[in-house]
Design a protein around this nucleic acid. Structure first.
Lengths: 346, 346
DNA sequence: TCTCTGAAGGTAATCGTTTTCCTTTTTTCT
DNA sequence: AGAAAAAAGGAAAACGATTACCTTCAGAGA
């Protein structure tokens, strides 16, 4: 628990509802009711109050209001980091939905650091915000569930299977299956996967789907073609590419866990005088904006990011209205955006 | 002014300081003083209070606290949009500095929409946050100044020349001068500039610096080589490139207002079978993360983003401590990061 | 004329803290 | 030992809104 050293703002004068009431010659109740459009006051009185408020540039104090109503109108969104264009449209979706219900969202990054995450979780506990949407958490399943029991809390994109909490995500198993199938239908037989190996939930699911697709097509997965990296960044992609190229029989297509991995692949191929899309087909994941901008354009599995955001807020809203409502689990459909590095089959 | 419909959170029970006091057999004053490390209570009493708080998982209510102290410990950061990697490190810098002073930052995007911006400005007016750092505003100079007089408010990156308000930015004139000079020293004589033409403050400054560098080198700026675009995106870059290539005597080097413009140039060159860095040298701006990732690597003018963030919070802190302190204007140094599209001179 | 109803509006309690005064007890100094 | 000072802790007044409850008054219906 942090100490709190109050530093006042005594330097600027501003009016309270009491003074507005005095100036308008009515009671504070009437002013409050006027502000909140609760009728009760006659039109003439309301007009007088509005005029005074405008004249003196009155703005109600959010803190006083929140204390009384036990609601702040703010929702916290936690991201791992800001500089990942995958999250932006999700946040926009949340914001869009929140705004329609009169909420403001605030965004904070946890930098995948537990202490930082705790600092922001305590904003919820202290009721400085009304609810929380987390796009990536360092919490254990048990902790997630416990927190969700105490506060409106929704998870997007990385939902623990067994936590009783509202969440929204794509079907990662199916996404892996679809990506592999797409490459198979292009005629590839030796297909690699570069997977992310951190304690994260989606990688094993995508890999399972990937393997199943191969088996369904009568291809036995070659373990030397399934690599795991500790980061999903460009360097890891390049390193993995080198490994694959040094095999006696390199793959002709690769499914990457992320777009940066795909970019690393392309870099490494270029260093060998090879071209992604011609000498090797590549599919990335998340359809981040660089995928559409890169040369060559990167084929990528796209998540319905904006909808994920909208849905997440909807789920949170239910929880804010009734904390005891039963948690919902929503799955949204993904797509594959075909560009240069892997053409559309057929 | 928005009405406010209180929706209660009656469903979950939690303790107040009063109940903690009762359970510990002390007064609320003692509990409060213990929480805030204000001494006064004996060590034994303090321990008893901490134990009770831990046992019952007590967390002080931020709203009650804020109402009394007139401070929320939150600072609002306004961005144009989230999906621009230029802003991320600035926000990280702000966050870093804020954290050291016990503040939390919250990020919101204004989507370059006045109504949206107003909604967030009213968070400041309602005192739901203690201060505001804006990385891009749709407000007029007069409005900016007025707001800065009433609330702690700092601007970063795009500071109106004549507003009396604290701000931090680079020297855009010098940045334009340096970029041009770099190309001149590489031996180029026909140097183009693709500038941004929106009501923004930095474009004319950078252009002035660009022109001055040419003149200082004895080169008369060729007006057909100085283009203005309404967006600073990839499409505009490609379109501008086409224009330049269709000239009787195309330039051999280009200075772009942004990295996306540079990427557009590269795309268009590639479409003509030309290579950026070989057939034409290109310098972008902001050193966004795609610049380092792209093939070829994009040479770009880099702003000291993290430091801009740290400095911005420092300036805001001064204003939060004393709203009447005289505004400061800070200029930080830029650099040029050389990659493939324009080699370092000499 | 009398009662009843609804509208208009005021009074004061309340939300959960922090902090200003107090009072009481203990320690220190002479 | 006695006075002064310091330490420990409590009671209650803020902070600025919302709202439950009450009062007054005008008009309707009998």
């Amino acid at each position: 628990m942090l100490p709190f050293h109050g530093g006042q703002r005594q330097d600027v004068i501003f009016l309270t509802i009491k003074e507005i009431a005095q100036l308008a010659g009515v009671s504070v109740a009437t002013v409050s009711r006027t502000i909140n459009h609760q009728g009760k006051a006659s039109p003439e009185v309301q007009k007088r109050v509005w005029d005074i408020m405008k004249k003196y540039d009155y703005v109600p104090n959010a803190t006083g209001r929140s204390l009384r109503t036990t609601r702040t109108g703010m929702v916290l969104v936690l991201l791992p980091l800001l500089s990942n264009s995958f999250y932006s449209p999700i946040v926009e979706g949340i914001d869009h939905a929140a705004r329609q219900q009169g909420y403001n969202i605030i965004v904070a990054t946890i930098q995948m650091d537990r202490a930082t995450e705790d600092r922001y979780l305590s904003l919820v506990r202290m009721r400085q915000v009304d609810g929380l949407i987390s796009l990536s958490s360092t919490l254990s399943t048990a902790e997630i569930q416990a927190f969700g029991q105490q506060h409106p809390f929704v998870i997007a994109c990385e939902c623990p299977q067994d936590a009783r909490i509202s969440c929204v995500e794509i079907d990662n198993y199916k996404a892996g299956y679809d990506a592999a199938t797409s490459l198979i239908r292009r005629g590839h037989k030796r297909i690699a996967m570069i997977n992310f190996d951190y304690v994260s939930l989606s990688p094993p699911l995508r890999e399972k789907g990937f393997r199943k697709a191969l088996k369904d097509a009568g291809i036995t997965p070659d373990e030397s073609l399934i690599l795991h990296t500790e980061q999903f960044d460009i360097e890891s992609g390049a390193a993995s590419c080198e490994k694959l190229l040094s095999l006696p029989e390199p793959p002709t297509a690769v499914f990457c866990y992320s777009d940066p991995l795909a970019i690393g692949m392309i870099h490494a191929l270029a260093a060998h005088g090879l071209h992604a899309g011609k000498d090797m087909e590549i599919i990335g994941f998340d359809n981040t904006d660089v995928a559409g901008v890169f040369l060559p354009g990167i084929t990528s599995v796209a998540q319905p990011t904006f909808d994920i955001g909208v849905t997440a807020f909807g789920l949170l809203r239910e929880k804010m209205l009734d904390l005891n409502s039963t948690p919902k689990r929503v799955t949204l459909p993904h797509t594959i955006v075909y560009r240069d590095t892997a053409k559309e089959p057929k």
